[in-house]
């Protein structure tokens, strides 16, 4: 089992790409960017539209950025803040959903969790139930591979808060997914 992989993001740093590469880039990161845009604009439709526009712009950009991941996040951030400016809303107060946990129960019955891929999808479902902001932090760290400082900058929160989110996220995940750890996994 290969650990510490950032799935789907390996091929992103190509300077130029064809449609197929662009599609895999999109599929690897669009969902995270949509969550990130939603973090700012608090509206699913607007968030989707922002991400859509950023990808269209990237496609037609003559000089492809070196750090596509960072570029995409920064572009989504700028577009989101512009959107808020247009809406004459200031991103000062977030609706704090941190203590609200998604109720949607996608978890499989424990008895069915047998194979490695079952474990992974159980874990994914658990992560999907994390409170929104915590989930973004967790995904940015684990899926996108951003550092604490980068996450703090992108979300405009302190590094300390990033740490808190990660700690609470692990606490949450551990409580729900610790049964995934059986003997043969522990031996890894």
């Amino acid at each position: 089992m290969q650990l510490n992989a950032t799935p789907g993001l390996k091929e992103i740093n190509a300077k130029s790409y064809d449609l197929a590469q662009f599609e895999s880039l999109y599929n690897a990161i669009a969902s995270s960017l949509q969550k990130y845009a939603f973090y700012w604009v608090k509206d699913v439709e607007s968030a989707n539209a922002i991400v859509n526009d950023v990808f269209v712009q990237l496609w037609f950009k003559n000089d492809k950025p070196d750090q596509i991941k960072g570029y995409l996040y920064q572009s989504v951030k700028n577009a989101s803040l512009n959107h808020l400016k247009k809406e004459k809303q200031l991103p000062v107060s977030f609706i704090d959903q941190d203590e609200l946990t998604l109720i949607a129960d996608l978890t499989m019955p424990l008895s069915e969790v047998v194979t490695e891929s079952d474990k992974l999808s159980f874990l994914q479902n658990t992560i999907a139930q994390l409170p929104q902001r915590r989930q973004i932090v967790f995904r940015m760290f684990r899926l996108e591979g951003f550092s604490y400082i980068e996450i703090a900058d992108l979300l405009q929160i302190s590094v300390r808060t990033v740490e808190d989110h990660l700690g609470k996220a692990m606490q949450f995940i551990h409580a729900r997914a610790k049964h995934l750890v059986n003997e043969d996994v522990t031996e890894l």
């Binding site: 089992m1 650990l3 995270s32 610790k178 995934l180 522990t186």
Partner: peptide, 30 residues
């Protein structure tokens, strides 16, 4: 701690979610 460590390592393998807007919807605009 051991449990947390294993779960953490497993979490490195999580896959991106499906985007709300599929690539097929984006593509014509390209």
């Amino acid at each position: 701690y051991q449990e947390a460590k294993v779960v953490w390592e497993l979490s490195a393998l999580i896959q991106p979610d499906q985007p709300h807007v599929s690539f097929d919807q984006l593509q014509p605009q390209l």
